[in-house]
Amino acid sequence: MNLHALRLFHVIASSGSVTRASEQLNISQPAITAQVKKFEKELGLNLLKPQGRGIALTEAGEKLAAHATRLFAVEQQIEQLVLDYQSGAKGAIRLAATYLPANFLLPAWIAGFKQKYEQVEMSITTTNSAGAMKLLLNMEADMAVFGGAAEEWEDSIQMEQLFEDELWFVVSPLHPYAGRKIGLEEMVKQPFVMREEGSSTRERLFSLCRTYNLPAPRVALQFNGLHEAITSVVAGYGASFVSSLVVRDYVERGALCRVDVEGIRLRNTIGVCTRRKEPLSAAADHFIQMIRQSPYVQTPV
């Protein structure tokens, strides 16, 4: 079926005359009339009939006009859908995130994004660094937000640093090292409360010990979440090595104390990883643009 001719017929039917159709389409009346007559011949049906000085629809024309109205309404919906996805007003974003950004950054970022792009669907998988990288490489996530970036990346992955925060040694206020300045060798003799293997912060601590030729610290308690690990230290057991974003409030209200370890000033990278040379959807690109404008990114901790 000639859809162009069907569209001409549809405009005639909806406007009520060839003259008005000609004005709307900016096509001459003779050209429209000729194409509609050719269309009728192709169909083997009379769609229009004379009525006074104008025209009217035949019974077949009325039936076809009803279907054409629905067809071109769906076409408009499709065009709008495409525009929405192209503009980022609609779409889906699959996020993988390590525990630090998932708990302390993403909730505010996502809330701000959804206020502007309500129809964009978002799914978030919280895991450790190794798990987030695996999801990204397996194309099960569109981007991965890391707190404590790994030292090496696959060639197919590109990483954009958003900002940095500090890594702190923290203990309970009742701990003998609370508020003191001590050496790293003494610090790592303490029992540590840490996240599971695969946690980037845990790997940073172990790497720090290897750099200074010190024995690896004893991880006396291991949790899969940040909150559980910090709560145990607040309760009075052991020490932890953690992002300042996680424990800054605890320290300010006196629930935890920093330990000043001589010569150790480590920074923690907060970054977003995507697959290299693979364009992001418009929605995902809008999300990255938004988090670049967040207060943390504009004013690093």
Rank of each mutant, 00 (worst) to 15 (best):
R94V: 08
D155V: 04
T125N: 08
L167F: 00
G54P: 07
Q86N: 14
K63L: 15
L64K: 07
Q119K: 15
Q115S: 08
I157Y: 03
E152S: 13
G44N: 09
G148C: 01
T98M: 00
V170D: 10
W168R: 03
E118I: 11
A73G: 09
A130F: 08
A141W: 02
E140H: 13
I110V: 10
Q86R: 12
Q77F: 15
A89H: 08
E62Q: 13
T125K: 07
K49H: 00
M159H: 10
L48A: 04
L162K: 02
F104K: 10
A66R: 15
I32Y: 07
K134Q: 13
A60Q: 14
T98A: 04
E75H: 12
T126Y: 00
M122I: 15
L100S: 09
L45F: 12
L105Q: 05
K134E: 13
I110W: 02
Q51T: 01
T58H: 07
F39W: 00
I55A: 00
I110S: 02
P30R: 12
V82Q: 14
N128Y: 03
M133R: 04
L83Y: 14
A144Q: 02
I55H: 00
L64T: 13
K38W: 01
Q80E: 15
K116Y: 00
I157N: 03
Y117R: 09
Q161N: 11
L105R: 06
F113A: 01
L45D: 11
